Amino acid sequence: MEKNMNVKKMILNAILIAIGALLHQITPALGLPMQPDFSLSMLFIIILINGNYKTTLISSIIIGVFAALTTKFPGGQLPNIIDKIITGQVIYFLFKAIGSRVSDNIKILIALSIGTIVSGLLFLGSASILAGLPGSFTALVTVVVLPAVFMNVILGSILYKAIRVSLKASGVLVVK
């Protein structure tokens, strides 16, 4: 029975990663060679649903690679991989620190807001070192990262609620 549940979780993770990659591919740039990164929403949902380090690390790497393949930022391939791997770890340990003191609905809001900021800062920081930025770091945080936080919180919340409802209805996972 445990093996069957692991296969279901792996399939669920693969579907969520694919949806995240698709959203990342079709999301337009915001007037700059940058875009909000909705694949982060899926990464945070995967981390919350699974709650284990191995899945976090593997999902972070895979989502980083897909984000690198679909980036619209010149030279943004390596910065995408760096930011996803580190951001995944930050959110995993944040969830562990929070524990069960807050509901999963609050955890996902915390992850979507803090995680998107961390990811954006890591991406811009590594891109500035590796590829250069098309503007000042501060301006890009204001023009790209902060709107991405707003959009990720809204979209990610909707996606999380939809996924929770479908998981609950299908009985695939016991959702708190």
Rank of each mutant, 00 (worst) to 15 (best):
M1Y: 02
M5C: 08
M5T: 15
V7A: 11
K8G: 09
M10E: 12
I11C: 11
L12C: 12
A14N: 11
A14I: 12
I15H: 02
I15W: 03
I17E: 14
L22R: 05
L23S: 04
H24P: 07
A29D: 05
M34L: 15
D37Q: 05
L40Q: 02
Y53L: 14
K54Q: 03
K54W: 08
T55M: 10
T55C: 10
I58D: 05
I58V: 01
I58A: 04
I61K: 00
I62H: 11
V65K: 01
F66A: 00
L69V: 02
T70N: 04
K72I: 15
F73K: 00
F73R: 00
G76E: 10
L78M: 14
K84D: 04
K84V: 00
I85N: 08
Q89H: 13
F95I: 02
A97L: 09
A97H: 13
I98H: 00
R101D: 15
V102N: 11
D104S: 15
D104K: 10
I106P: 04
I106W: 09
I108P: 01
I108T: 04
I108R: 04
L112A: 06
S113W: 04
I114F: 09
S119R: 03
G120H: 06
G120Q: 06
G125T: 13
L130G: 08
L133M: 01
P134Q: 04
G135H: 11
S136G: 10
L140D: 05
L140T: 01
V141Q: 01
T142I: 04
V144K: 07
V145L: 12
A148F: 10
I154G: 15
Y160D: 09
K161E: 13
V165H: 10
V165M: 11
L167S: 04
S170L: 05
V172H: 11
L173Q: 15
L173M: 15
V174E: 14
K176T: 13
